[in-house]
Structures are given as C-alpha cells and as structure tokens.
Design a protein around this nucleic acid. Structure first.
Lengths: 355, 355
DNA sequence: TTGAAAGCGCTAACAT
DNA sequence: ATGTTAGCGCTTTCAA
C-alpha cells in the first residue's frame, strides 16, 4: 500500500510502529489510507525482518483421542489464550503422537523454521529432556509445573513457591479425618510425571501429620478404566477396605465414583471420594465431587505472562527498553504471575465415615 | 547456510524442493550439510515468498472458561490436528470473547496479516455472516456443520449428504418407543445455532413418524445449570411428566441425569435419558449414558482434509499441477471426506418405560 | 548442471 | 519531516 495511498514506505512503517519523525497530517493520511484499504502489516514480513512471529507454540505428546478425553489440557489452553489474545499473539498447536522422537522433531521444527517466539510446556516429566533440548535450540520456554530436578527453566505452578503446594491435599485429609475417616486410600497415576509423584507424596505427608498411614496406594494409569480397576481392587477385601479414596485427578475420581456405585457402594454413605483439579465435570455428576481445586485457567494465564516477560527480556537487546506505557503493544511486564494455592472444595462426595 | 556448507543458494532451494536439475553428488552434499547444521528452511521466509504459511486458523467466539467446560470443541481440534500434523501444518488458535466484532476482527487480522492459509469454522449459526466476510477477505474456509442457508462454502458434517443426518435421532426415538415410552421430551439448546434447530426438528420428525408428539420442548441454554432447570420443569407436573428425555448434547444430558437423581428419580427406572455427541464423559458416569454418537474426531479430520483440497485447488494456478507422488508434501487430494452418520449407542441410561 | 540476481513486504539506517 | 535503500531467507527465472 503506502506509496499508492499517500506518501512513502518508511513513513508508513514509522506510523504503524509509533516511531517519531512524522508530522500529524502525514500520519493521518497514512492512517486513513490503511483504514480504507483495510491494510495491516503482513505478519510474515515482519517476522522475517525482525524475528518476532507473535505466536507461541505448544506441543502435546499424546494421541489426539487421549487428549480429547482429557479436559485438563484444554482448560489450560483456554487460560493461555485468554492472555495471548489481547496481546494479539496466536497459539500454534502441534499434537504429535506418543512416539518419543516425534515430540523432539516437533520442537526442532518449531525452532528451525522460526515459527514461534517461544513454547509453553506442560506435563513435567521425571527425567524430562525437553528443557535441555529447548536450550540448545535457543527457544524461550516456560514450564507449567515443577521441573523434575533443579533447572533454570522458567516455570509456573499453583501456590507459587513450593510451600503452599500441599495446602489442598492437607485440607482434604483434614476434612476426611474430621469426618471420622481413618482408612484412607490414594489412587495415583503413572509416576513418570512430576506432579503425580508430588501429589502422592503430599498426600502421604498430610496423612502422616495426622498420625495415619495410607491404606493403599494403587499406581495405575490416567484413564477411566484404570480408575475403575483400581477401585475394584481397593474394595475387594472387606477387612482392609478404605472408607475414603483420593484420586490423582477429577476424571479418575468421577470414574471411581461410578465404579463404586456399580459395585453397590453408595457415595458418600459407604465411601467418600475426593478428586483433584476441579474440572467442570465434577459439578455435573451426582453426587457432586468434592475436590482439590486449582485454578487451571489462571495457571495458563500465568504461563503466558511469564512467556511475555521472558520475551521482553530476550528482545531487550534492540527493542524498546523503557516503559512507554502506551499499552496495546503486547508483552507487558508487570506483577509476577501468582496463582492461588490449591484449596479444598467440599461438595457432596464426602461424608461421615461408615460404621 | 547453503553457500557456506557446499554450493550455492539456488542449489539448496532445488534440493529441498525436489526440483530437477541437480546432480546426485551436489544433492548429497547439500543434504549432508543441512543435516550437520540441523538446518531447515525458515517458515517465515517461505511464507513471505510463496504465500504458503502452512498454518490453518481457527477462531472461537466464546470466553475461555465457557470453552473449557465444553469438550466438544477440543475433541474437534484433536481431529483436525490429527490430519494437520503429518502434513506439517500447524493450527493457529484464536479465542476471542463473546463480543460480536471481536470475532470479525480476529478473522480480519488473520487474513490481512497473512498468518494462515485458511480457516476452519465451527458452530454454524443462523444468519451467520462469517462466510461472506471470509469471501471478502479471500480467505479459504471450511465449515464444520451445515450453512444456515444455501451457500457455496465448503462444509463437512456427519452423514455427509443430508439424508443420513437424522439416522441417530430416529434410532434413538425407535429405541425408546420399543421400550414402551410414549411421553418423550426434548431439551434443546439456544436455537440460534443451526445444529440445534436441526436436531430438534429431526427429533420431532422421528417422533412424528411413530405417530407421537413431543411432550415438551424446552429451549434453554447450553449449560449444565440450564439443563438442570429444564429438567426440573419437565418433572414438575406429575400428570404430564415424560418417561424419557433427549438432550441436545452429552453435557446437558449428564447434568440432567444428576438433576433427576437429585429430585428422587432413578435413571433409567423412573426416567430414561439420551444424549448427543458421544463424548468421553458419557461413559464415565453411572449409569453410563445412552447417546447419539457422532465421530467428532473424524469430523475434524474431514474438515482438515477438505481444507487441504481447497488449498490444493487455490494454489493450482502456479504450483505443481500433476501427481508427483513423492508424498511428504502436505495437502493431498484423495478421497472425499466421508464421516459416518450419527448412530445410537445404547448404554445404561435407557430402560423400559415406568408404569 | 549450476550460479547470479530479482524480488516477496517489511524495518532501520542513511540521505535529503 | 520525509524519501531512498539495503537487506531479512527464501524461490524462481534467466544466463552461463
């Protein structure tokens, strides 16, 4: 456009980027022309020139249908987008299969092809190699969760500093103990994830603090079927039967409740059930699920904010270093991304211990 | 890279694009160099040059938390991604608020900034203005669903041609009638969506075919609360009380079942319930939800495939017109994207009519 | 078979 | 205050 509609190319550039050295009349003419032609700078050209793509990447190393069944991920994405959208950033999603190198390839492409300014990682794993990879690739990264070992990667998690991480689980155990429960079981997920292990440990610690030991810990998988199987085993032997069960997440807890009901146990009369995450499904079912709630949407927002901060610093070499305060310019660097610690939400799936 | 690691820039270009006019040795040298340097063409530069961004856009005109609560969308995305990923296409997501012009702005940006090669639309609406807008913008578009009025836009839906669209609902009604139900209610969603109206009509037609009339049709909203309220009204007057209820989607159906249970009605003993979509949540609950199943993942794949076809044609003006058959090149143009018609999946939430 | 060179739409020096 | 110009990393004629 530019030349055709008014003046010269650099004038246009200066106007759209709010650079000084433009007279009000010229400025206005450019704005008018842009308006009339419905023109706006080509993102590709800008990216080519300046290395800013205004897109953040996410790679999900799971199959499409597993992902579809797991709302956790989509809730997180909602949060991330909530922050990205106003800054006019896009989210570039890449769902790759379960094969380990598919994931690595995806990150490599993202980096080599310069498609995104940075990536957000989730599902922190034990022995995670992604941080190192991303560092090699020079791709700014933010982790949602806790690194498996001390690592300089930027990360966000509910409760911020680790001190508050266990608050929800402690409240859950206290709640059960006050209801008279003494035999409390925990159904964990696959322990190659950091958060899975952390939650289980936090649970054990909370129980320990009340002088109790877990009745059972069943390591299973993150699927509804696995939850059902775990519950079945838990309820099989009458003499060791728990009166309450905590699950590693809401989906498993809901599946567990159904299984209990199917086996003839009424919730919460015969068995109390507690989930983790506080997904919408928890209040859809009957009885409504008591759960440890963490603000996943907020967590997503925090991750995006942290990413903006990271990019702001990275771009600091040549960009606008000061506070021009004009807003509407994307990455702002204000307060630290704080996410409230997990809390217990008592609904209907917990009650006094049977007998 | 190129020059440094071997020969000349155009040689490299020819190699990576499988263009003729390269001797095997040269070719090999380029490949080796690229391998060693872990180099691959910059997506931005390619896009700038050739108008292909290898990204598809999607704009969701809903607030982040509404979206989070609705798995429908994420399942669809899984399907789309399943097709995009192997072709090395990315999905650029934009979640904008409910404000009407925010959505339009998002599409405009996508088009003006040339960030994507095309967009996939969902949630076909009555009086939808998006097709026209996209046409103006010159952005290739594929609709998941049926246009509200005859429109040249490319669209995909379960059952392909409209003839089979009602199969699931007919089966559902037949199933209920055979179980002895005569008073069958339908809880619809907001009728500004095409599919909402279509499903309700299909239901009425199916009922009509059996010589019955719907006991009640309650237009509500697509939320769990609304479903609960609707059900409450439905069960309020004993003399007109239905023995079976169909819901416009699974989430509402699950919420409805819980509400029934809370009101003292046992499902399916006192009330049969049928959902629509067949989302994972349906088999998580007790009793497991009988539902009209459509293959949402497949629908997503079909949309992506249709998009590739569209892009292939659009690019045909200057691109490779023939069948070079080398694969790995992205948009293939094979069979038509067929998605199986909706079918009834009978689980546990339906049973013989009470009394 | 290979290389040189002209842009794609922008931004940032450098003139004017 | 404004215009000119050299690339960013590629693809693609066109010459050699």
């Amino acid at each position: 456009m530019a030349a055709l509609a008014g003046v010269s190319v650099s004038a246009v550039s200066k106007v759209v980027n709010d650079r000084p050295g433009i007279s009000p009349p010229t400025r206005q003419r450019v704005l008018d022309a842009a308006e009339k032609l419905r023109w706006s700078p080509s993102a590709t050209a800008v990216a080519l020139r300046g290395a800013r793509t205004r897109a953040i990447g996410m790679v999900a190393g799971r199959s499409a249908d597993v992902l579809a069944a797991d709302p956790h991920f989509s809730v997180l994405i909602s949060g991330i987008e909530a922050e990205l959208a106003p800054a006019d950033y896009g989210l570039l999603l890449h769902i790759v299969g379960e094969e380990p190198d598919a994931e690595e390839r995806a990150y490599r492409r993202l980096a080599e092809e310069r498609r995104v300014d940075g990536v957000i990682l989730t599902e922190s794993r034990i022995g995670d190699t992604r941080f190192e990879l991303l560092r090699q690739l020079g791709l700014p990264a933010v982790l949602v969760g806790t690194p498996w070992q001390p690592d300089p990667i930027v990360s966000v998690r509910a409760g911020g500093d680790d001190l508050d991480q266990g608050a929800g689980l402690r409240a859950a155990v206290d709640h059960l103990v006050e209801l008279g429960h003494r035999r409390i079981a925990y159904v964990s997920g696959p322990e190659d994830r950091v958060h899975t292990v952390a939650r289980r440990r936090l649970f054990e610690a909370a129980l320990d603090a009340r002088g109790l030991r877990p009745t059972r810990i069943v390591i299973s998988e993150f699927t509804a079927d696995a939850a059902v199987r775990a519950l079945r085993r838990l309820l099989a032997e009458p003499e060791r039967r728990p009166t309450a069960v905590l699950f590693a997440n809401d989906t498993m807890a809901v599946a567990g409740m159904s299984a209990a009901r199917r086996l003839g146990f009424e919730v919460p009369r015969d068995l109390s059930v507690i989930g983790y995450d506080d997904l919408p499904v928890g209040s859809l079912v009957y009885p409504r699920l008591t759960t440890v709630s963490q603000d996943l949407v907020q967590l997503g927002r925090a991750a995006a904010t942290a990413m903006f901060r990271l990019l702001g610093e990275a771009a600091g070499t040549a960009g606008e270093p000061g506070a021009d305060g004009s807003g509407a310019d994307g990455p702002g660097a204000d307060g630290p991304p704080a996410v409230r610690p997990p809390t217990l939400v008592v609904r209907e799936s917990t009650g006094p211990a049977a007998g």
